[in-house]
């Protein structure tokens, strides 16, 4: 009993410390005060300011756009890649597994500048596609790493059985393999979204300067030792609310899965 209390207190303590900066922003999103630390009356004014700020709204939209686009590309390419890797011969499998680890282990800034060099060398101007490629490089290994364990659990006879029963390989792939690895695909997709939303470095180096995301916008205003613009506190609250709705939905889905 004492151990349980101790364990839970430790967990809570770490979570409280982790969420403290976010909580501070949320609390001060309901005031007009420009300084954190001085409270000047309850107000929704910062929310109005946030929605009226075109720069922030555009950055938010761009962030979501690139997160979804890159995650879709990564998930498709990565899932097919994982299946291909799994059924490759041993040597090829080792090579492919090895290169999959490169973007995971490589320093993000090195990945970022290597892409910059590539695009400049090829004479490609930075646009949405270069940014997309950057985010796919960043996220695609995690799709492979999420799908691979599911392939290992797959019963190899199922695919053979489908072929024996007259399915073409592509039908067998769609009807047998894909449905079985779907949970891995889904968790890979969610990891992609998370990593893409979180990213700054790759974005900064592969985007066109006219295309700003939340991270580049925030870096632009804070790096020169400016405090966070007050309307970003409102934005933090908004994202946090979305985050918790998502968590509740996941919880609900998991609870339902356990029941069935």
């Amino acid at each position: 009993m004492v151990k349980k209390i101790l364990a839970r207190s430790y967990l809570s303590l770490i979570l409280i410390i982790m969420y403290a900066p976010i909580a501070l922003l949320i609390v001060y999103s309901f005031t007009e005060s420009t300084n954190i630390g001085t409270w000047s009356g309850f107000s929704f004014d910062l929310y109005r300011q946030m929605f009226a700020n075109e720069e922030i709204m555009e950055a938010l939209l761009n962030t979501i756009l690139i997160a979804i686009a890159s995650s879709v590309v990564s998930t498709i390419l990565g899932t097919l890649g994982a299946i291909g890797i799994f059924y490759s011969r041993r040597r090829m499998k080792r090579v492919l597994n090895g290169i999959t680890q490169i973007p995971v282990l490589n320093a993000e800034i090195v990945t970022a500048i290597s892409l910059t060099i590539l695009f400049v060398t090829l004479g490609i101007t930075f646009n949405f596609i270069t940014l997309l490629i950057g985010h796919v490089v960043l996220t695609i290994p995690f799709v492979v790493l999420s799908v691979m364990p599911k392939l290992q659990q797959l019963d190899p006879n199922m695919y053979e059985a489908a072929l024996d029963l007259g399915a073409t390989p592509s039908i067998a792939l769609r009807k047998v393999i894909i449905p079985e690895v779907l949970p891995g695909v889904l968790s890979g997709f969610l990891l992609c979204i998370t990593l893409s939303l979180d990213d700054y470095i790759i974005t900064a180096f592969t985007r066109n300067n006219s295309f700003s995301t939340l991270s580049t916008y925030v870096y632009g205003v804070t790096a020169k030792r400016g405090a966070l613009p007050p309307s970003l506190r409102a934005l933090t609250t908004l994202i946090t609310i979305l985050m918790f709705i998502f968590l509740l939905l996941t919880n609900f889905r998991k609870a339902k899965a356990v029941k069935n």
Binding site: A20, P21, I22, D198, L214, V218, L228, I239
Partner: peptide, 16 residues
């Protein structure tokens, strides 16, 4: 917390 971008979180930590 990664959904709240890391630059934003870092700036928030600094403000705290």
């Amino acid at each position: 917390p990664m959904w709240i971008n890391f630059v934003l979180r870092t700036a928030a930590t600094r403000d705290l």
